[in-house]
Design a protein around this nucleic acid. Structure first.
Lengths: 227, 227
DNA sequence: TGTTCGCATTATCATAGACTAATGCTTGCA
DNA sequence: TGCAAGCATTAGTCTATGATAATGCGAACA
């Protein structure tokens, strides 16, 4: 049984974005690990050595780490727990989507497989959590869906919000207030490169201008491109 | 924030039965603490010192420990979490009462007050868990109800099972199979002191002979004494 | 080609919680 | 009254996880 700390490292390694243009199987530098886990670089190095000895990662000194096959399987299992718990907290207990991330962060280490599968059943085997993040199946990889950041959607396109990447409560409250939740539809009205912004029109809510950094955190499914 | 380990010690101290004829405010000897927590005596001593420094217990060397006011409040809070979670696992997720104790043992340290109060609401503010153990209110002590162990009920008495003290899955399965669950009614048929046993007749189930040790773990409410 | 800067690694230390083994009280009994 | 038995305490060690500080490698630029 991995400790909660080990589980958190594995999860963090899995969700590290690959450097631009790199495959997700590339090595993650130690600095990135240390920052993701908010520990000192020395702590990150020694933990990666420990995980490597346990066969959960492949560690190349001064180059970086990547998850091993076993580490990947474990990371997916933990992510499954985390996301099912989030969905449960929203659907069954009625918590707000902005507060469930931190709750799930604790519960994911305490819940048993049995309870988890009961939750899965009660929820009807959902495949995403309240933020649109895919819930990995109990075995194997989650299905890959091609999504486009709102910041890259064409002017005139009609899109459906599929996933909101930022888990910060402030951002999630903002997104909720403006109708930017998974499933809501919107039309891209304009890009303003000079202002580093994009304007869109959510269905049933006032139009809205976002910085491209914020818009990059909203992943969408393109329903209809500009004529 | 106390660590999970500290929480477990406090809970264990609270549920220690007072020595026969003693007030619950009496000192608990270290050996009893060590046994309850399944740690070595040395570990118990050093932990009690730590808890005493934190103001959670009163520790008298070579005499024993008792919970301080703060320690008692914390212990009740943890017991509330534990028992509400058990009730939730049975009522909402449909787990068996024999398996929820161990699950709750983990979850009680991970759950937030917010989630707990949602669970309490969803369950309609129950006042006992699936074993009949009282759920402490969010502030203050649980109400005291006078219960009689089945082993001490008079022959001929009609009683209602109120609480099952043993949390071992084997015992709980046995009790369930024979209709000895909280709320079920039974009549005491006979005591057999020589055989160290008691025979009773659960409503709607075959009559049953139990050892007095087992019968002592079934607490009942006397509905009607023998004529 | 050499030097420097940024990052990684090593070394040392701290804390919580556990263990075992050795020592020390205390009490009851002869 | 004195001593043995039974607990409790102390002392020293271990593991997991963190920190800080000092050292070391390597790549980019002059």
């Amino acid at each position: 049984m991995p400790t909660p700390t080990v589980e958190n490292y594995l999860k963090a390694l899995y969700v590290q974005p690959p450097a631009p243009g790199q495959q997700p199987t590339e090595l993650i530098p130690m600095g990135q690990v240390a920052e993701a886990m908010r520990v000192s670089p020395g702590t990150a190095t020694s933990m990666m050595k420990t995980l490597a000895e346990a066969g959960l990662v492949e560690y190349e000194p001064r180059a970086g780490v990547r998850l091993s096959e076993r580490g990947l399987a474990l990371a997916l299992q933990i992510l499954r727990r985390h996301r099912l718990i989030e969905q449960f907290l929203v659907q069954v207990l009625g918590l707000d989507w902005s507060e469930v991330h931190d709750e799930a962060e604790e519960l994911e280490h305490a819940i048993s497989d049995k309870v988890l599968e009961r939750i899965d059943l009660l929820l009807g085997h959902p495949d995403t959590d309240p933020h649109g993040d895919p819930i990995p199946p109990s075995h194997g990889q989650p299905a890959h869906v091609e999504l486009t950041p709102l910041s890259l959607a064409e002017v005139g396109a009609q899109v459906t919000v599929a996933r909101v990447l930022d888990q910060q409560p402030d951002f999630l409250n903002f997104a909720h207030q403006h109708g930017l939740t998974p499933g809501s539809r919107l039309t891209v009205l304009a890009h303003q490169p000079a202002a580093d912004a994009i304007t869109c029109q959510p269905e049933g809510a006032p139009s809205l201008t976002l910085g491209t950094a914020a818009a990059g955190k909203i992943l969408t499914l393109i329903e209809q491109t500009a004529s």
